[in-house]
Nucleic acid binder design. Structure first.
Ligand SMILES: [Zn+2]
Ligand SMILES: [Zn+2]
Ligand SMILES: [Zn+2]
Ligand SMILES: [Zn+2]
Lengths: 135, 135
DNA sequence: CGTCTGAATGTTATGACATTACATGTCGAT
DNA sequence: ATCGACATGTAATGTCATAACATTCAGACG
């Protein structure tokens, strides 16, 4: 599964919708954009999103219940990823920091905690929006 | 607002419900536990939770849409807090790490991002549950 | 006292996000 | 052909959160 298989039709459509979007989209937002492609029910979106997340092509933003296409060309699965989310324009920046990852891993080891998923999200206002004097 | 004022009746009830709970509670879970105290609608819970979060007495766990009472005796407002959430037993451990906070602050400074709220949540299985051989 | 005002509360309705359950289709392996 | 694994279609339901509006409460002030 390292090189994920061909995407199905629905997965391709969902990924394209996210790629074309300016910012994160909710599942229902994706659904609305795919009505013309035959999408009728939320489950079609959620099922595609689940696979795309497994492939590392899409990330879920827990703090805003939305999804973004991964900015890396071929996805990634093993790093801890942090997100900076502009609550004004929706821009999402994705980054990883080895020191952050290492410190969290230390806590986890020290407490014998078996991590399954790590969420790091900073919400706020991006530089552009701040410069423009956004509210 | 450093020493937060007296809590109102509803705020007190919600905080007590969270204190008594084993793990995190959803807003509707809190509502159910406060029916006998006269609670009838979700808004009563959400309004109390909003204030309690401002006072630093309650934290929202974004990745599971739930709330926990702060484990510090008098709350805290200025640190970046990380949570380790056991998806098996619901146990939540709260910790902060200066190095993590500093690294995230560096990214934010470098990108002129104006942070409003930082979420760090590690979901997984706690040591006790792993030892018990949980699934 | 009476009134004004801001905060908290009560209530109904609605919106937003996500999953369960079951039926159907597709395609390669045997 | 038939089987199994996976993807899909559809309806119904469950879960989380807020909008809108009316009412109540407690302190400030003349
Ligand atoms: Zn990515
Ligand atoms: Zn922005
Ligand atoms: Zn705390
Ligand atoms: Zn546990």
């Amino acid at each position: 599964m390292t090189a994920h298989p061909e995407l199905t039709r629905n997965q391709t459509l969902v990924l394209k919708a996210l790629d074309r979007a300016e910012g994160p989209l909710s599942a229902y937002g994706i659904l609305d954009r795919l009505r013309d492609d035959g999408f009728r029910a939320p489950l079609q979106v959620y099922r595609a999103l689940e696979k795309l997340q497994q492939f590392g092509l899409v990330h879920r933003l827990e703090s805003i219940n939305a999804f973004v296409a991964c900015c890396q060309p071929h996805g990634h699965r093993h790093e801890t990823i942090a997100f900076a989310i502009c609550s004004h324009c929706g821009r999402v920046d994705e980054f990883s920091d080895a020191a952050v990852e290492e410190r969290l891993n230390e806590w986890v080891r020290a407490h014998r905690f078996k991590p399954a998923k790590t969420t790091i999200e900073i919400s706020g206002e991006c530089a552009d929006c701040t410069a423009r004097g956004a509210g």
